[in-house]
């Protein structure tokens, strides 16, 4: 993936936010590499480029640790979509989203879209436990990599880091229900001063996923990418009209995000 996207300019920015150990890196890893890996705690933030048809989507995977909180607003600047991630088995992780992370999104685009994602669904939901060979895939835009065979998911990596209980195969108590997430989504819209009727409906923007089995992961990212496309197109149009000269293009080098997108 890096080879193919290396020289491309990112068109849109997506940011993963959430408390420590909710599985942000694992979600992204599941989506980009199609496997679940026992990752270690992210330091700072990690930047990825994803080819989505003709577009380049940059994804910022941030550290959930409080230690790196100071960088949050930098990651969110100019974001077109923010994925707020919590752990379905940990009520606190949803509360943290509201307390710590929501304010970071102040620097995101005004038309930024928000997704509320409950990860680790495999620990509470039997239907999320089956390895998901292919999620709902919208064929027209996917690259061939989407069809790669599923590597041995469950055997190689026994458990997501923060859930030792899953070792025993026990079902954990689901602490955060879908309704809680929907209610939280409503509060995000209110925080942003958005009208619920003109915004994307909560049912569409609240997901429960499992990075371990792959449940709903592709759906999440692809739904988001589809939704941010208008933002990309609008930006492209703006850029065409914009009098700004892109110095980077003259040198044939890319990768630097156009400043005009920033607030």
């Amino acid at each position: 993936m890096p080879e193919s996207s290396k020289m491309k300019k990112p068109d849109v920015k997506v940011v993963l936010l959430g408390d420590m150990n909710v599985g942000k890196t694992s979600l992204l890893h599941r989506y980009t590499e199609k496997k679940f890996k026992d990752t270690i705690s992210t330091v700072g933030g990690a930047f990825f480029l994803k080819q989505w048809g003709p577009y380049n989507i940059s994804i910022w995977d941030t550290a959930g640790r409080e230690q790196f909180h100071g960088l949050g607003s930098m990651y969110c600047r100019g974001a077109a979509a923010v994925i707020l991630t919590y752990d379905v088995t940990n009520w606190q992780s949803l509360a943290e989203l509201e307390e710590r992370f929501l304010s970071l999104t102040d620097t995101a685009n005004l038309d930024c879209i928000y997704a509320v994602v409950g990860n680790k669904a495999d620990l509470t939901d039997p239907k999320a436990q089956r390895p998901q060979e292919t999620d709902v895939v919208s064929e027209d835009r996917t690259e061939c990599e989407e069809d790669q065979t599923e590597p041995q998911v469950t055997s190689a990596c026994p458990t997501p880091p923060a859930s030792p209980a899953s070792l025993s195969g026990l079902m954990l108590h689901q602490q955060v229900t879908h309704e809680d997430a929907v209610a939280f989504y409503g509060r995000i819209l209110r925080y942003k001063g958005l009208d619920e009727n003109n915004s994307l409906p909560a049912e569409k923007m609240c997901f429960e996923t499992s990075a371990k089995t792959g449940y709903n992961v592709n759906t999440l990212f692809e739904t988001l990418f589809d939704l941010v496309l208008p933002s990309i197109l609008r930006k492209r149009n703006e850029n065409q009209e914009s009098p700004t000269v892109d110095l980077e293009e003259c040198r044939g080098a890319t990768g630097k995000r156009s400043r005009s997108a920033c607030c």
């Binding site: 993936m1 890096p2 890196t25 992204l28 890893h29 980009t32 590499e33 890996k37 990752t39 270690i40 992210t42 330091v43 700072g44 933030g45 990690a46 930047f47 990825f48 995977d61 550290a63 790196f68 100071g70 960088l71």
Partner: peptide
């Protein structure tokens, strides 16, 4: 060594 979990990406971190 410790941040090599996701080696394909670019990491930006305060240190």
């Amino acid at each position: 060594g410790a941040s090599s979990a996701f080696q394909a990406g670019e990491i930006w971190t305060p240190i």
